[in-house]
């Protein structure tokens, strides 16, 4: 596992965007060689999307041969609802870039058969050759995607009932009316994300600092589902200073000492495979 500690959340956005840019470009995607990306929504990755759009507009990266799989979507929320993840992805990313609509995959929370929708999603991921880079954020309770505390760490894409904490946290997006918050979601499983070749998790802000501590300093625990990625061969945690507040000084110092090595990951001239050999 690598932990990259940066000054601010905007540094996190920029670092993550640079990393995505470099991974795509090093991959040299083409008509027979698609780069498959797993994508999150929410406020944490927003800055990364903004920066990627800038890179696209500047001609630094193309998404023509990129396939995407989003992590999750609410059940029974109209697709054009401002809180739907379709709405988020369209407005904050897809409409600005050159991605082919057929290469975009987002779980359909309005499907007539939700179980079938989830199973098909797993099949689609497999058909695309698996996910090369899965980007995620986490909740203050350490959930990744909608894998709420207590989710199986080998779970696959499925219907998930949301925890009360999540409903309360989301009520502000639904006119502070908790009854309007969708209480179910479709989500990839922890196991689905674990299958990705690489996982990059973005964590910013003091309110996520306890979750980051649980994720990396304590053992693997299904009450903090993101901790499962301790056992993934290629996990990158990218966080800001605020998110480190609950970490031990020793942990922070250790990873900061390695920062020169980690920053090589986004340097233009060094092929990603080369910098990745050193852990």
């Amino acid at each position: 596992m690598r932990l990259v500690i940066l000054d601010t959340s905007s540094c996190v956005a920029e670092w993550a965007a640079k990393y995505v840019l470099k991974r795509i470009n090093d991959f040299k995607p083409g008509p027979n060689n698609y780069f498959v990306l797993g994508l999150p929504t929410g406020s944490t990755p927003y800055g990364m999307y903004q920066t990627l759009i800038e890179y696209y507009k500047a001609g630094k990266v193309s998404f023509k041969y990129v396939k995407t799989f989003n992590m999750d979507e609410y059940v029974s929320l109209p697709r054009d609802h401002p809180e739907s993840y379709h709405f988020y992805m369209w407005n904050n990313f897809f409409k600005h870039i050159d991605i082919e609509p057929k290469n975009v995959h987002i779980l359909n929370g309005n499907a007539s058969d939700l179980v079938e929708e989830c199973n098909n999603y797993e099949n689609e991921i497999a058909k695309a050759g698996g996910i090369e880079l899965f980007i995620g954020g986490i909740g203050p309770d350490g959930h990744i995607a909608f894998n709420e505390p207590g989710s199986s760490l080998v779970s696959r894409t499925r219907v998930k009932t949301l925890a009360q904490d999540t409903l309360e946290a989301n009520a502000r997006f639904f006119g502070n009316d908790i009854s309007k918050v969708p209480h179910q979601a479709l989500t990839v499983g922890v196991g689905t994300v674990m299958d990705a070749k690489e996982v990059m998790i973005l964590i910013t802000g003091t309110h996520k600092s306890f979750a980051l501590y649980k994720a990396i300093e304590e053992g693997v625990n299904h009450m903090w589902t993101v901790s499962a990625f301790q056992q993934h061969p290629h996990t990158l945690f990218i966080c800001d200073e605020d998110a480190t507040l609950e970490l031990k000084v020793k942990t922070v110092k250790y990873f900061k000492a390695l920062s020169a090595v980690h920053h090589k990951l986004i340097e233009d001239e060094i092929p990603i495979e080369q910098s990745r050999i050193i852990h």
Partner: peptide, 23 residues
């Protein structure tokens, strides 16, 4: 914002993207 037009009418590109999956 981009303006999308088809058949003389202003259309919602989000629907074209997700439903018709065309550009």
């Amino acid at each position: 914002e981009h303006l999308w037009v088809r058949g003389g009418t202003i259309i919602d590109p989000e629907k074209v993207f997700f439903d018709e999956k065309i550009k």
